[in-house]
Design a protein around this nucleic acid. Structure first.
Lengths: 399, 399
DNA sequence: AGCTTAGAGTTCACTAGTTGGACATACGCG
DNA sequence: CGCGTATGTCCAACTAGTGAACTCTAAGCT
């Protein structure tokens, strides 16, 4: 940090290298660490000792061919990260450790009419409860990732206007939560976090580029490029919901006409069915009915799929991601919606880009966002926070 | 390289750090280098001596406030890079040095019916002539960037089918040129290189994200994200020409209907005017006539602009670049085409994304691609080739 | 003119940190 | 029981960066 090109920074880098290697493999012996990192055995020996003393890593004996190799693994509570997600109806919290393991997860209903401050208070309580329930040491919490269902200015941290949480416009969620929890908080919107969640724990495992399309009351996309969330210079990348499909189509809430959203989002699609299926229909209900064979619902879902497919085709031509993951309520419809999407992509995308694209349903359902928040916290701390001593060792009051 | 986490790698990194700092600033004194790199003055002293002995850097006295500060700059021929671009009608070659200065540039007509091998031979001759003309030492050439007007598989280096150079399909340009020139060659397509060229030397100076839209016989886009060309996992990102604007529009050569290309590319637009303006009309001619006030040409160009604007709006919603640069013949039309583009973007893109977007004409005209090829060679060598000794110092035969 | 001052670059002793090789250790196999 | 083998540790050597002291030079002041 303070000495950007000196030996101590090299040492730090090597520490991180070892931690990363261990985390990726789950557990390794020192000799294996030396081989995978390219460091010498002597260096690894020193580094492992340092990490062990710091509490970041645990060393357990194993039986092997030659001398007993001691296997090195991340100690369970070396560093704790927390993910918080404010969704349309629920608030979710997840606790995980640096080994990418989720230790606990819980959700509770969110009162949409409550003020932002009340929401943050509730979140703080839920976090505290979960920390207590898992028995982790509160001082080990290294960071929090926070998901909000709306546009957020990443620079200033201010929440834009949200249809879902009307009273929250202008709130600064990161700041609020940092004050309450006393640790660094990183925010992003739900689509980006869903993308990250599916990438790390769900349908995106193994790829580096992914587009996560979330269809709920609106349509949004989260883009992950080369393992990192891509926000664009203005922070508004991924607005797939408002690409124009039909210049003379229905008027959209954004002011344009014929946006993808007007053909796919719940708020525009449900009215089509409410005359025939009753006014209380939800997207969930449409999906359920479609799976049970209701022809009207099937037709609507297929149409939605076709339109989403057009949008995905554009996305595919421009960005050529290797995988598109469908999230949100609609993903529950499975092939009923994926089939038409794929068909539409095949029709409208250029063949060379469409060929290697796979369109998959999200594997995490409603958990994608919280888990993405967890992943955000992990990625933002860049594996280095846990090396700070202040975290892994109890801060010495005097020396 | 061989010792990934050791002091020697740190030293290398520090060498690069210094070189980069010097290159970005043009010239710096040692004290300034120390400040900008964060290294200590002592280290800088050693590094500068090493670089000077290696011939990478030149030290010239200056007069300053206190002791004469010696200003350090990259030595003119520390490393030479070459850009080669095969365009629709011409082949261009540029020679530059590591200080991002273009030393020489030349073009000659390209015989489209000639075989690929003949084309590469001609390119080699032109390169040799230019090397001789600038008087640089051939052994200092560190790398070559190569632009081809068609889809290229970056993995295998194979050229896909090109309408412009029909006989070249399946050629491996990088391999061919490497054999002829004996230095590393990096290929990319013209749109990507145009993007890079405009970013480094043209209308994209100062931004990190840029979309370069090239309208000629087809419509393509090159995307630069965070300073690097973005190709996508399959290498086909940026196919803006084939996003669908009208599902029941004209049939496109790609097999779909209503692609942007069918509304904007020369091969579809020119026929509209040939009945009224004669069959020999070129895009160039249309632009010239439009500037002279011909109403038909103006109308056509405005229509093209509106359609491009729709495509850019999609691009903007999905990717949110900070700048869009228009290249190709059409850019010569200036406001005649930019106005309608901006208008269309304003209409179809979501306001928050459109607000911070600037749409500019390319500043380099037909030179964008060669210069981009130069920039590619520079970026691919990652500033480290010049530290190899084999390059900057005559290889010692014995020690 | 002479003195002071301050920034520039260099030298030197010191320190952090990695490495190769020597060494101790422990397990399985014959 | 001894040998072979792979593991982890220790030590001396080496590399490379740093702070402090030092020299040098030109500008500014008296």
């Amino acid at each position: 940090m303070e000495t950007p090109g000196s030996q101590s920074s090299l040492h730090r880098a090597n520490l991180e290298r070892v931690v990363r290697a261990v985390r990726l493999a789950g557990s390794l012996t020192q000799a294996e660490i030396a081989r995978t990192t390219g460091l010498s055995a002597a260096t690894v020996s020193n580094i492992v000792r340092e990490l062990k003393d710091g509490g970041t890593v645990e060393v357990t004996p194993t039986s092997a061919g030659g001398r007993r190799a001691r296997s090195v693994s991340l100690s369970g509570d070396a560093g704790i990260v927390i993910g918080v997600d404010f969704g349309h109806t629920h608030m979710r919290v997840a606790i995980g450790n640096l080994a990418h393991q989720v230790l606990a997860e819980e959700s509770e209903p969110l009162d949409v009419d409550a003020s932002a401050a009340q929401g943050f208070d509730r979140a703080e309580q839920l976090v505290s409860r979960l920390i207590a329930a898992t028995g982790v040491n509160r001082s080990k919490v290294a960071g929090v990732g926070l998901g909000v269902p709306g546009p957020i200015d990443v620079e200033s941290g201010t929440l834009g206007s949200t249809a879902i949480l009307p009273g929250w416009t202008g709130a600064k969620p990161a700041e609020e939560m940092r004050e309450r929890l006393g640790v660094p908080v990183h925010v992003d919107n739900d689509a980006n976090l869903g993308a990250l969640g599916e990438l790390v724990w769900g349908s995106g495992k193994g790829v580096r580029d992914l587009a996560y399309i979330k269809v709920a009351s609106g349509v949004g996309a989260g883009l992950v490029i080369d393992g990192k969330i891509y926000r664009g210079p203005g922070g508004t990348a991924g607005e797939i919901g408002h690409i124009t499909l039909d210049e003379s189509g229905p008027v959209c809430r954004c002011g344009n006409r014929g946006c993808l959203e007007t053909f796919a989002a719940a708020r525009y699609v449900l009215p089509l069915l409410q005359s025939s299926h009753g006014p209380d229909l939800t997207m969930d209900g449409v999906v359920r009915l479609a799976r049970d064979g209701d022809p009207g619902c099937r037709r609507v879902i297929a149409d939605v799929g076709r339109h989403i497919g057009s949008g995905v085709a554009n996305l595919c031509n421009l960005l050529n991601p290797s995988r598109v993951v469908l999230g949100g309520d609609l993903a529950e419809a499975g092939e009923l919606v994926l089939g038409p999407i794929r068909e539409s992509v095949g029709r409208y995308a250029i063949p060379s880009a469409a060929r290697q694209l796979s369109v998959l349903p999200g594997a995490l359902g409603g958990r994608a966002e919280v888990l993405g928040a967890l992943a955000l916290a992990l990625s933002e701390m860049g594996d280095s926070t846990l090396l700070d001593g202040s975290l892994s060792v109890a801060t010495p009051a005097f020396t």
